[in-house]
């Protein structure tokens, strides 16, 4: 149950704790469902990355991903093939 930002997150499912950005960027994230309390799955890592959140796929730049604080669920952490292929699995 460790907290991290989405920019370094590996494929898997997380719960969003907070969005730390400011101004319009926060609105752009939150209205897409990247908002505290939501379950966020990282589908494809890299920059930009792909998330699944509230039933839809969302493309997100790593810069903004860095403002999204998530905690790992510990379950469903699918460390599948897409991570290793991307080679982008930074901490």
């Amino acid at each position: 149950m460790s907290q991290t930002t989405l920019s370094g997150a590996a494929s898997g499912t997380y719960r969003c704790i907070d969005v730390a950005g400011k101004g319009e960027q926060v609105i752009r994230l939150k209205r897409m469902g990247i908002c505290s309390g939501r379950r966020i799955s990282v589908v494809q890592t890299g920059d930009p990355m792909i998330l699944r959140v509230v039933g839809a796929r969302v493309g997100l730049s790593r810069e903004l991903a860095g403002t999204v604080i998530v905690e790992s669920n510990g379950v469903n952490a699918d460390r599948g093939s897409s991570v290793s292929r991307n080679g982008d699995n930074r901490d």
Binding site: L29, M32, A56, V58, G59
Partner: peptide, 8 residues
């Protein structure tokens, strides 16, 4: 403007 885009 950093990217946030729905991939429908």
């Amino acid at each position: 403007i950093p990217l946030v885009i729905e991939l429908p």
